[in-house]
Write a protein that binds this DNA or RNA. Sequence first.
RNA 1: GGCCCGGUAGUUCAGCCGGUUAGAACGCUAGCCUGUCACGCUAGAGGCCGAGGGUUCGAGUCCCUUCCGGGUCGCCA
Length: 584
Amino acid sequence: MCGEVTDKDVGCEVVVMGWVQKRRELGKLIFVDLRDRTGLLQVVFKSELDSELHSKALQIRNEYVIAVRGVLQIREDINPNLKTGRWEVIASELRILSEAETPPIHIEDDVDTSEATRLKYRFLDLRRPTMQKNLMLRHKVAKIARDYFDEKGFLEIETPVLIKSTPEGARDYLVPSRVFHGRFFALPQSPQLFKQILMVSGFDRYFQIAKCFRDEDLRADRQPEFTQIDLEMSFVDVPDVLTVCEGFIKRVFGEALGIDVKIPFQRMTYAEAMERFGSDKPDTRFGFELVDVTEIVKDSGFKVFSGAIEKGGSVRAINAKGCGAKFSRKEIDALTEVTKTYGAKGMAWIVVEERNLRSSFTKFLSEDEIQGILNKVQAEPGDLICFVADSNDIVFEALGHLRLEIAEKLNLRDENKTNFLWVTEFPLFEYDDEEKRWVAKHHPFTAPMDEDISLLDSEPGKVRAKAYDIVLNGVELGGGSIRIHNQELQKKIFKLIGLSEQEAQERFGFLLEAFRYGTPPHGGLAFGLDRMVMLMAKCDSIRDVIAFPKVQNSSCLMTGAPDFVDEEQLKELHIQPVEAENEK
RNA sequence: GGCCCGGUAGUUCAGCCGGUUAGAACGCUAGCCUGUCACGCUAGAGGCCGAGGGUUCGAGUCCCUUCCGGGUCGCCA
């Protein structure tokens, strides 16, 4: 192929086929750069050798598909910018396999085309070398997953895509049943229940590269259909799962990228992650950790602080080292806006200068309080100290994102680092203010930590789960848990999240029944394949590692899906569109 | 559903405080060119200024509505 020629091929007759990247016409001499997925190779047509061939070559335009027979030569002038710049094919025969209209986008790596146009003409966009590289990398990751888990004794087993809708979690995609009027299949949000049943069935190590579907709004790292590397193991506890997964990551990064990842990864409890980074997926590539100054200012005359503390909240700070000298007032105000996005009412700040402080609020504090804060955050001249006072949730959320924003501004999010991290001991439940009930933070089959089981009745919010997430550079790469294999405990959890026995039977009856017949302790994890490849390819969006992604409103710009269907089809399914309500 | 940014030639963009015939680069077409590789030179074609309405003597430009794309909050067990 084009990119695979070597000096050994020099002097040999070769046949190359591909797309015309570029033609350079110099009168009686025509150069054509021929492209396939391995690279570019220059082909030369000389009229002095064959004028008929030369005039045929004049018809060639960009993106024509051609086949060329000729002898490989070392070039007179070597092009050092090209991998194959040493060689060229002196054409002796040309076949135009397919003509091409002028493409609406340039087939080039430096993308200067809007994403909408790229996605509409995805078949052309995918010709670009970076996109080809991304999809080849994705293939490699999938292959390594199969190799690794096979070697570790895992079986790849497919689970159904048309399944029963279950409550909790994301909105389901529904598929109507033709046979049962008014009934629907759901597309799986993950193979969760099936892989647990496979454990009951004795397939003690399962994995699958599984498509999952969630009907929620999109983000740069979220698509309505996405792919998980899903795994489940029997007779294990948390460390067993983490170890297997670390081995996989080491293997993938080593084999696919040549990066030596050190294992085991750092492990951090959820509580510590929140306390230090204000996030359950901390980016540990830089500092700016959160500092709790609640104790220092709890009796302060500054009502914003003392008031928040009175209501059970806290006051925490980030010392943005050196930013006081760097950031303008306008930039600091912009940071304030960032915190407001996450529910903070505002952000207090201090700029530490050589002799004095510039600040939005220190006039409300006593000298002791100011000194106390400066000591606690280890302030030095040039620093910018940012404070948020509110409920803990908001303080963590706001400062957690502020941290990222500051790091982004300072370019500290070094994409060459690979800071892997396990976040463990997630809370089992979180309180849903709207529904006024506890909901499972991970999913309702997650096992509580043994030592916290006694808290289930008294303080459900304090119960920690045997749940864990794997985080890379602040991105959640995957997550999982040890599952409940004790029926009594499972019933209790359902009850706690307000699921009556009857509802539980209706929705998960098959799983509960399966659990009655001998269930091994089990647990597992699912990696987000798209996100993993995105980070490995250093892309900003998973759309760049998915061949045919959807846009923000979940439609496909290339195919035009979703679309209306024939009335016949609807009739057969006994479905009737409801007239859109007039929106006022 | 909320907020922010964007939509002008095939593509990426410029177009000031509203003022003649809407520009540039790349791409495209034709001609010339024997060592190019960001080839070069000459000529040329190409526009519903996202859509609809309004203000105005006059709208790419201002206002309203709407559609489309991106980011983000909510949402995403």
